[in-house]
């Protein structure tokens, strides 16, 4: 990545005030309301350093989870939760299927690493399920919970097809990645993307990220990583069932299930009308039966 010409205006190593439109210098994109922003997480570049997890916790003042070892790979986080909005998954390919791997694939040796995050779905099931309007689409086309509105009904939790959003039982509200809504408003790149040392997490305008991702897949195919594909772009796995596309999408090199991602998630609200209408039709049927029964009662009873 080239250094932005404006960077020369800030030669100091310490700043007394925020840099205007800092994201232009760090991510090469100016953040403006009304445009679509997202994350492109390129797992072939991930080195599993978990800087994104730490940066997210720091910026969003999220508490630590259980401090301990899971005993499964280097992943001691486990998964996304109300207080963990970035989660680095580690999948060791050695020993899978009973036998040891005898050769190394290009990139990442035999480790797959992926920094998981809220997908900020285009048709977000959590948002569609939220009865209070606490979940909303921001001016940056991201999905955020308004903490002062959420009443902790928890209906967004089973609505999410990715198991992302969760209710924190300590404060009784639903929480998930905000795609650093506060930082975007101030012209800053989200904390995880800014801290990522390998640019595995890239923040930007969605159209530009799609273009960059398609190019990266081609490049990887050329380099011999034929298994590379996108997850969450229009028409790809992860963007199925009416979700259309995910604002936070991924480049993967193995089956989605290996990363704990659903291959064909669905939009829960598509089931509202089928279930409601068949239920009401059932009740209408029983109403007619009851009319017949009781009208008969009045005639025979006399």
């Amino acid at each position: 990545m080239q250094i932005h010409p404006r960077a020369r205006e800030y030669p100091d190593s310490q700043f007394s005030r925020p840099i205007r439109d800092e994201s232009e210098l760090t991510a090469g994109v100016k953040i403006e309301p009304g445009k679509s922003y997202g994350f492109f997480t390129d797992t072939t570049r991930c080195i599993g350093c978990k800087a994104c997890e730490v940066a997210c916790k720091e910026w969003n003042a999220l508490p630590a989870d259980s401090v301990g070892l899971t005993g499964m790979s280097y992943d001691n986080t486990g998964g996304l939760s109300a207080s963990t909005w970035r989660h680095v998954a580690f999948i060791e390919k050695i020993g899978h299927g009973g036998g040891r791997a005898t050769e190394m694939a290009p990139y990442q040796s035999n480790w797959l690493m992926m920094s998981d995050v809220c997908k900020h779905c285009h048709n977000a099931p959590c948002l569609e399920a939220c009865p209070t309007g606490a979940l909303f689409k921001t001016e940056f086309d991201t999905v955020v919970v308004q903490q002062d509105v959420c009443n902790g009904c928890g209906y967004c939790v089973p609505a999410c097809p990715f198991g992302v959003i969760d209710v924190n039982l300590d404060d009784g509200k639903a929480h998930k990645c905000t795609l650093c809504y506060d930082r975007l408003k101030g012209g800053f790149e989200p904390a995880c993307a800014k801290s990522c040392p390998t640019d595995s997490i890239q923040f930007g305008e969605l159209a530009e990220l799609h273009r960059r991702a398609a190019e990266r897949v081609q490049e990887l195919h050329r380099l011999g990583v034929e298994s590379a594909y996108l997850y969450g772009t229009p028409g790809a796995p992860g963007a199925t069932g009416g979700l259309e596309y995910l604002n936070a999408f991924f480049l993967l090199t193995d089956a989605p299930e290996v990363y704990n991602l659903p291959r064909a998630p669905t939009r829960a609200s598509n089931r509202v009308m089928p279930s409601l209408l068949s239920g009401l039709a059932t009740m209408a049927g029983f109403a007619v039966a009851a009319v017949a029964l009781f009208a008969g009662a009045s005639r025979n009873g006399r």
Partner: peptide, 26 residues
């Protein structure tokens, strides 16, 4: 009782959302 922030129960009638049976049901 089953809300995790029960004192805000009235937010259930703050909006109406046809995509949410929780809202329709309220």
């Amino acid at each position: 009782m089953d809300l995790h922030t029960p004192q805000r129960f009235y937010n259930m009638l703050r909006i109406f959302k046809a995509t949410s049976p929780m809202s329709i049901g309220s």
